[in-house]
Amino acid sequence: MDENKAAEFTGRVLADTAAFATVVLAALGDRAGLFKELAKGGPGTSGELARRAGLDERYVREWAAGLHAAGYLRYDPAQQRFELPAEHAPTLAVEPGPAFFGGVHQELVGAVQRYDTVAAAFRDGGGVRGDELHPDVAEGTSRFTAQWHRNLLVQLWLPLVPEVEAKLRAGARVADVGCGTGQALIELARAYPAVTGTGYDVSPSAVAAARAAAEAAGVADRLRYEVLDASGGLPEPYDVITTFDVVHDAVDPAGLLRSIRDGLRPGGRYLCLEINCSDRTVENVGPIATLLYGFSMLYCMTTSLAEGGAGLGTLGLPEPVLARLSAEAGFATCRRVDMDNPFNTLYELTR
């Protein structure tokens, strides 16, 4: 054994373990509103921050000291004030900005709270059902994906698929499968006044939130949301169907793709956003892949296996797998859209 390499690895594990504690501290600060308070109101002592945010000073003091130790906050010892650097605000306080991580932290900490059940599944199989996950998983996912819908969907992704965009401008009937809290359809309805659509999700609470969000956005007259397991078929035909990081989670991904194909009108288009990954394990390395494998273990894979499903996992739908499944489902074409995104890949499929 190389003693230097062993010592180096021990240091690496220490850093990774400290990073986990940092995520917990960051999630607590996000939930308490402390990052946004620092961004809005400027630096403060622990007492000043506690008063401004309506919190307990002792907890604020420990939290701030911990994130100063991690390098997230600055500290002025003369004034005993903590500061959120301007360069850190987009990642920690600007929601739903393109760099915001608050939703990711909430989702991850929520998923870890079912650790015991996942650990038992290593021995017994199965997993954690979606409705058994901590509520922070759904809420964090909604906050995280809001970044795509607000900052990327209309601005960057749709111009890359001009035939889809033309259908939307002409008043396409759109279905968003696995719609969550409905944000994708809401953004499409805002950007394309002639669009009408339906969102489908298996979660009654997500559908209720989507309906409320559409009302608040003033587009409820053109959108509706329904509780439905779309793998069993869609109730009406559509010009455009979308899924955003949904198929790899599905209990029956092959059945879901068949339903989507059958639910398209002739000439219809299906936009499938999926994880940017390889079908070769050796290529799925680095911090992003590590994070996604963690989410897979605690969320994407386990919820599918809990239902006796395929258990593809977060990185389980690379391009060759999607191409095979889409051909088996009857799609005529499956095109990977040329875009630069470290997390996601966009595909355009035709009936």
Rank of each mutant, 00 (worst) to 15 (best):
E348Q: 13
Y347F: 15
W157K: 04
E283C: 01
G47Q: 07
H88P: 01
V112M: 15
Q147I: 12
G29F: 09
V104W: 15
N276C: 03
A21F: 14
G316R: 08
P204S: 10
L257F: 11
A93K: 14
E132L: 03
A212N: 02
G54M: 09
K40Y: 07
T242F: 15
M297L: 15
G268V: 05
V282P: 00
R143K: 13
G182F: 12
P96F: 13
V202D: 06
L84G: 09
C277F: 08
A210N: 04
A172T: 10
V161L: 01
E48T: 10
A26Y: 06
R336F: 02
L160F: 02
N341P: 02
T243I: 05
G126A: 04
A220F: 10
L264G: 07
A250H: 03
D249M: 03
G102H: 10
G41W: 03
T22F: 03
P43F: 04
N284L: 11
G54Y: 12
G178I: 08
G125K: 08
R31K: 09
R114A: 12
G125I: 07
R74K: 14
A170D: 14
A329G: 04
R52P: 06
G267E: 08
R52V: 06
V128N: 05
G66N: 05
A70I: 02
L28C: 02
S231M: 04
R261T: 02
V174S: 07
L25R: 09
Q183M: 13
M1A: 14
P342V: 11
Q106F: 01
A189W: 14
A15Y: 10
R351E: 08
G330W: 15
G125W: 13
Q147P: 00
R51S: 12
L55I: 01
E226K: 10
F101R: 10
C179L: 02
V94I: 11
P77D: 05
R129D: 09
G44T: 06
S142D: 14
H68Q: 11
A230M: 12
L305Q: 05
A332R: 15
A111M: 07
Q155L: 09
L84W: 15
L291S: 11
